[in-house]
Amino acid sequence: MAVTESFSLEVGSHSVGVATGGVVPSAALAADAPVVMLVHGAGMNRTVWQLQTRWLAHHGFTPLAVDLPGHGLSDGEPLSSVSEMAAWLGEAITAVSERLECEQVRLVGHSMGSLICTEVAAADHDRVARLVLLGTAAAMPVHPALLGAAERNELLAPELMTSWGHGSRAHIATNPTPGLWMLGGGIALLERADNGVIHADLSACAAYGAGDVAARVRCPVTVIVGSEDKMTPPRAAGPLIADFDNADVVHLAGAGHMMMNEDPAAVRTALAAALA
């Protein structure tokens, strides 16, 4: 197997940023290694999955962590609603299915990405085989101070999101990757977003209402919640979880909203069980 990230994808006429965990996806590979599409949260990009994609790529899966339009390396403008993002993800699944000759994909979504993936799973029973949600909730209200700072493109927005998005261990320099500063990395990631992107995403989250979407999902669902998640507290996920027909819940003690970075080993273990 080649070991490079040189995999290109287009949705419509726009190029999409994709991380594949260092293994070039192909139809031959995807025939035996199920395709897993991972969708990031507000203001972020594909790199939030870097501690999961490489592991997945070398443990029987074909991971594709995608940048939403206007994020990371993806062309286009950021979309203004979760429904528009879900429609885009549906088109991305079509492009991936044609490229890798696969009939189904597994969806993994974090925060805003969890809303997007749930909408797609509810609407496309035939092509979504598994659904994994991290940092999710039936509704995602946004604090006015955060929304205002994002509208003004102030550094305060990344600072608030990073502070609220990490559990107490991350605030005292604990990091699974020695030598790296988790909070500093979170701020740096969000600072890379173009002007208006964070505000567009947060506005979409604030306006979203789940309705009966969970009840319309037919595939197996796993919900991963962090005990110290301040942005989507475990209790906020309760109504959504209750509406799923077939859902397992994984609790990560001491993890906050950015659980993929805070406790990557536990997240990988949960993904391995949920995606099999």
Rank of each mutant, 00 (worst) to 15 (best):
V3C: 12
T4Y: 09
S6P: 04
S6Y: 10
F7I: 05
S8N: 14
E10G: 13
V11R: 06
S13P: 07
S15H: 11
G17N: 12
G17K: 12
V18D: 03
T20E: 00
G21R: 00
G22N: 03
V23G: 01
V24H: 08
L29P: 01
A30S: 08
A31G: 03
V35T: 10
V36A: 04
H40E: 05
H40V: 02
G41M: 07
W49C: 00
Q50K: 04
L56G: 00
H58W: 08
F61C: 00
L64C: 10
P69R: 12
L73E: 13
D75I: 03
E77H: 11
S80F: 02
S80N: 12
E84V: 01
E84D: 14
M85D: 15
A86Y: 10
A87D: 15
L89I: 12
T94Y: 03
R99K: 13
L100A: 02
L100P: 03
E101C: 08
E101V: 12
R106C: 12
R106S: 15
R106G: 01
G109D: 09
S111R: 11
S114W: 09
I116W: 07
V120N: 07
R127P: 13
V128G: 07
V128K: 04
V128C: 08
R130S: 10
L131M: 12
L131E: 12
L133Q: 13
L134S: 07
A137M: 06
A139K: 15
M140C: 02
V142R: 07
H143L: 02
A149E: 12
A149M: 03
H166T: 11
S168F: 01
S168I: 05
I172N: 13
A173Q: 11
N175M: 01
G185D: 11
G185E: 13
G186R: 13
L190C: 03
R192A: 14
G196H: 09
A200N: 13
A207H: 08
G209R: 15
A210V: 02
D212K: 08
V213H: 14
A214G: 04
A214P: 04
R216H: 15
R218G: 06
P220F: 02
V221N: 09
G226H: 07
D229I: 06
T232W: 00
P239K: 01
A242W: 01
F244R: 11
V249N: 01
G254W: 08
A255M: 10
E262I: 10
P264E: 10
A266P: 00
V267K: 04
R268N: 15
A270F: 01
L271M: 08
A274M: 00
L275K: 00
A276L: 04
A276H: 13
